[in-house]
Design a protein around this nucleic acid. Structure first.
Length: 617
DNA sequence: GACCCAG
């Protein structure tokens, strides 16, 4: 499960000598590659299974003859997916015939992430679905809008994802798809663009990984340029933090085991040389943070011209002020195929309408999908708000921690995650907790990547059961056993609050979220009070008064919270967002036919309602 | 203010 660069160093050492096949093709010109892209821009994701994938045992085929050649970029690794594509090329029939799935396990040492084979490797710490209460999902509210929405499926077997992927799904102990998977996977398999409000705890990562992996396995892709040091991924998955990219990479690798689909992660703070070597050995799916990706693009070590699939995790964050220019540059100003040619999938739990509108620049005739959650699960997280002056916060936190210690809700199985506003504040609080007898560590952007990963490991293992964090840890991270999230400093944005408290109460477990509120947070009062009310939480009278005060002053409005909060609703259906005359563009030529209106009322006026309070992410 | 290349 580890993807830190320190660990991949090991994998690298084990993986040489390279078995990558070099067919000797002269580095391709951009034009040729572009032609290849446009000629195969939407690979058919039909039920067709290439012969070499039919009835294929997991790892029975012997390795091909070793080919001595310098590592070539983008050679399909392990074969499984028809990477050879056109066997008419100089690749040669022999080579492609030998590239059946898993042939090179002994040579490339593809680590078995499941620990059920010869390779002994610790099993994944999280088999998230196994802890999910599926009964609670049965009547979950789901909304879709857009043209010709493909119907949802009820089982993985209804979709032909391919044998190797299906085997991995079974190994993950995923018995049946979660609601977001039931809806998002058919949409993606159909080749449609997607904006999905979904939840990590219910398998969001799988929801975009399965179609990508399956599509690459089945796709008949033109030979990617070789011989140069430029890598040509077929899929790009972007996320806002390094740790989240690592987590997605771990998941994607698990799903890709013995499929022949190669997953590489690239993020900042780690030595770039290792990542360059990984890329040289071939990449189908690239998981990256924006900064390092831009760096690699500028070095011409990556080209996006073969990208067929683009997925943005935490998409609203990626398109928020801080990231949007970089994302726009990557998606629009590099060599990535344009929208409508590539397939684009955006995932997040919170999707403010302003961000939805921005996002529509990257999408073509997309489907909007919102997965709510049953009201009963709301109670999994108890939200408390306490009025605490700045000067009293530390002693108040100490009281909470002492109480937890007495309750026994402290330690390996009851982790406490404390969010603060600033990096300095994180350091200070960590130090203060330590000298007061509470072992704590911290994660924030001023720590080295090694320190960040180390802190996360200490916390996850329970060795240090308190983690002080900035918003770097607010989104997406799946940390089991977080029993308590403390908003020592509340965020300025209610969406950030939603993501923060979503670190607890995951996978059917209960959670507690405590917030320290004072005058400095008055701009959040209204959103907080509304959210708590929707979540059937007790709203303190004083908070309601704050909320009432800020409601007419316009005080708490910011760009992300104005006009409909949690994005549980397609902005294209909001007429106020279509007034500029460009509304038709958002639809790409058609109106919703999903009957949204009929079920929309159950959403309680456009929010996630109860859904925002828990594992939904 | 936080997060996102490199050094």
């Amino acid at each position: 499960m580890r993807t830190s660069w320190a660990d991949s160093e090991e994998a690298e050492a084990a993986a040489v000598p390279s078995t990558i096949i070099n067919n000797g093709v002269v580095p391709n010109s951009g034009a040729a590659a572009a032609a290849a892209v446009s000629g195969n821009s939407r690979p058919a994701r039909s039920a067709y299974v290439p012969p070499h994938l039919r009835n294929r045992p997991p790892s029975s085929t012997p390795p091909p003859p070793a080919v001595s050649a310098p590592p070539a970029a983008n050679t399909r690794w392990g074969g499984g997916g028809g990477g050879g594509g056109r066997s008419g090329g100089s690749f040669g029939g022999a080579a492609s015939n030998t590239r059946t799935g898993g042939w090179d396990r002994g040579r490339e040492r593809e680590v078995n992430p499941f620990g059920d084979d010869v390779d002994v490797e610790p099993p994944f710490v999280q088999q998230e679905n196994s802890g999910i209460n599926f009964d609670a999902y049965e009547d979950i509210p789901v909304d879709t809008s857009g043209d010709n929405v493909p119907p949802a499926v009820n089982s993985f077997s209804e979709i032909d994802l391919g044998d190797a992927l299906n085997l991995n799904i079974r190994r993950c102990k995923y018995v049946k798809p979660t609601p977001v998977q039931r809806h998002a996977i058919p949409i993606s398999i159909a080749g449609r663009d997607l904006m999905a409000c979904a939840q990590t705890g219910s398998g969001k990562t799988a929801a975009f990984c399965f179609p990508i992996i399956s599509g690459i396995m089945k796709g008949q892709y033109a030979q990617r340029p070789r011989g140069s040091r430029t890598a040509y991924p077929l899929a790009l998955i972007l996320s806002p933090t390094r740790e989240l990219s690592c987590q997605i990479h771990d998941e994607a690798k698990k799903f890709s085991y013995q499929t022949g689909v190669r997953v590489v992660v690239a993020y900042g703070g780690a030595p770039i040389n290792q990542q360059l070597r990984d890329l040289e050995r071939g990449v189908d799916i690239l998981v990256a943070t924006p900064g390092r990706l831009v760096d690699l693009l500028e070095r011409a070590r990556i080209s996006l011209q073969m990208v067929q699939y683009l997925a943005l995790d935490e998409a609203d964050r990626m398109l928020d002020m801080g990231f949007e220019p970089q994302i726009r540059r990557i998606v629009e100003q590099m060599d990535m195929p344009p929208r409508g040619v590539r397939q684009t999938m955006l995932f997040s739990a919170t999707f403010p309408k302003e961000i939805q509108r921005l996002a529509s620049d990257f999408l073509a005739n997309y489907i909007f999908l919102a997965v709510g959650r049953v009201g009963s699960s709301t109670d999994l997280i108890v939200q408390r708000v306490e009025f605490v002056q700045e000067s009293d916060k530390r002693s108040h936190l100490m009281d909470l921690l002492h109480a937890q210690r007495e309750n026994g809700t402290h330690g390996k199985q009851a982790l406490t995650l404390v969010f603060v506003e600033t990096k300095k504040g994180a350091d200070a609080l960590e130090h203060w907790l330590c000298i007061n007898g509470f072992p704590a560590t911290s994660i924030h952007g001023d720590r080295s990547q090694q320190e960040r990963e180390h802190a996360l490991r200490l916390f996850k293992s329970g060795a240090t059961p308190i983690l002080v964090a900035t918003d770097v840890a607010a989104r997406g991270l799946d940390i089991p056993h977080v029993a308590h999230v403390v908003n020592f400093d509340l965020p300025n944005d209610i969406d950030d609050y939603v993501h923060r408290i979503g670190r607890t109460g995951r996978a059917g477990k209960t959670g507690l979220a405590t917030a320290f509120f004072n005058e400095n947070n008055s701009s959040l009062a209204r959103g907080l009070a509304e959210l708590m009310q929707e979540s059937n939480q007790e709203v303190p009278a004083w908070l309601s008064r704050y909320a009432a005060r800020s409601s007419y002053g316009g005080g708490g409005r910011n760009r992300r919270s104005g006009g409909g909060r949690f994005g549980g609703r397609d902005f294209r259906r909001d007429t106020s967002f279509n007034r500029s005359g460009g509304g038709g563009d958002y639809y790409g030529g058609g109106r919703s036919n999903s009957g949204y209106g009929a079920s929309g009322s159950s959403y309680g006026g456009g929010g996630y309602g109860a859904g925002v309070t828990s594992a939904w992410d």
